[in-house]
Write a protein that binds this DNA or RNA. Structure first.
Lengths: 271, 271
DNA sequence: GAGTGGTCTAGACCACTGT
DNA sequence: CAGTGGTCTAGACCACTCC
């Protein structure tokens, strides 16, 4: 601890432990020394040591488990979602025979995981459109909506890869009663295939991406530390008549998700 | 505090204050009661109250200022970056006469701010390609690279809108010595216009997006609380010959940035 | 100088995990 | 049961801001 280089003790401890983790001295999956041990090692109170550990958690480097210990986080299965390819790919599959659609879904496409490794849950409900939803769909607030909540998990890791809340106009999808039954999920071929059964073809999909800290509930479901970020994707699907037919919000853990877009540019004329 | 509804005291305090902020009882920009006041009001120790405030900071709701007080955060100027439009727009401008390129840049395009409201800093340096950069550009590690660091701020808010680190192959851009001089920034028309002067036309741009907590240094520069997330965009520009000509990393505050992509789908045949 | 948030201590009790 | 992390207290001193 030299002269004017002064940062708080807890921060120095946090940085020292961070460096050990990055160097690999503390191995991924391995346990940190217990809080009393660290307190003794650095000559600090347990409170200060806990402060340092809080930093490491906010940096996403360690995970604390009640009654067990504090562990260096593993690099988890990464998910690379190439949306530019994925949306067209889904569209191309929507009209294929069911047997073929059933073979692979979009999540397998993203993760490279096999279908039996994935677990899929859905729950449907009907709600009245909020003013915000009314604006997005250009409909009256109060219109009956079909709300669908999904989450997809990897069986080997048991924490969900994402949480999805999707909205459709209820009376539109009611044209095919099968679409109102959550028991039919996962629907082979996904949403675009479902829309196809009621004669809807998509023209384009608009993705809006932001990032924020997780809500306590989301941190719990996605099994991430409260200090780790989530990516929020707001996806709006527009059909060939220009109407908004689906709006969904997807929450993904920021530490394991990578979203990819390719923008193809038109050529300069006269080359 | 009812029966089995038990969450920790500090969390209950955090949630009560959160609700007051969301309801507007505590106005944006206004001060929270001081820590001793809150301790008295809730009948808790100052430590517990500080714990609650730490939560609010991690949620991005308040900002603490040493020696002054704790304030409810204002909603800041939001930045909506429509990359699908923006990249083509930049390409179309690249060949325009300088007079015309000079009128508006991409940041104004995103924010709706006027040029005099924006401040722009650039610093250039040369480095040797790391193995990672070598892979991205498909060149030998150690190749001389031009590294350009930018940051763009709004004068009215004084915190940068983003931090950019961009790489080009030095000997490629050296064909136009003007491109090696940071004094020429901001270059009217941006990077695509610069590349045009050395005969490079882009074919496509690949964006990869992730989110994570900010490094302490980034939190400092972007003026965000350590608990708020950043969006990280890795952008790879590929020319018409298929070569990678630029790679850049853009760090943006997650609480004020929204990135938009539109995926245009091709029509089903036979409709 | 008074008031603010930032750091730190030394202790306590709790819930949870392992054996 | 012992050991872990989670919560909480009652105090202390500091650096900083504002008057």
């Amino acid at each position: 601890m030299s002269q004017r280089d002064w940062r708080p003790h807890y921060m120095q401890v946090a940085e020292e432990l961070r460096d050990e983790i990055l160097r690999g001295t503390l191995a991924p999956g391995g346990a940190l020394p217990s809080e009393p041990e660290l307190a003794a090692r650095f000559g600090l109170s347990r409170t200060s040591v806990r402060n340092a550990i809080k930093q490491l958690r906010d940096w996403g480097l360690v995970r604390a488990e009640q009654g067990r210990g504090t562990y260096v986080r593993q690099q988890r299965q990464r998910v690379r979602r190439n949306h530019t390819e994925r949306y067209q790919w889904e569209k191309d599959r929507a009209r294929l025979p069911e047997q073929e659609r059933r073979t692979t879904g979009a999540t397998e496409h993203d993760t490279g995981l096999e279908l039996p490794d994935l677990e899929f849950r859905a729950s449907y409900s009907t709600t009245a459109a909020t003013p915000e939803l009314g604006r997005k769909f250009n409909i009256e607030p109060g219109t009956r909506m079909l709300q669908r909540d999904y989450w997809t998990s990897s069986r080997t890791e048991d924490s969900p890869l994402n949480i999805v809340r999707s909205y459709l106009v209820h009376d539109v999808v009611a044209a095919n009663p099968d679409l109102l039954d959550q028991g039919n999920e996962p629907w082979p071929g996904g949403t675009q295939s479902q829309l196809f059964t009621i004669g809807i073809e998509l023209d384009r999909i608009v993705d809006e991406i932001t990032a924020r800290p997780p809500l306590p509930e989301e941190a719990d479901i996605l099994k991430i530390e409260p200090g780790v970020s989530v990516l929020v994707l707001q996806k709006t699907s527009i059909d060939t008549s220009g109407a908004v037919v689906e709006y969904s919000e997807v929450v993904m853990p920021g530490d394991r998700t990578e979203i990819v877009y390719t923008t193809q540019l038109s050529r300069w004329a006269g080359k």
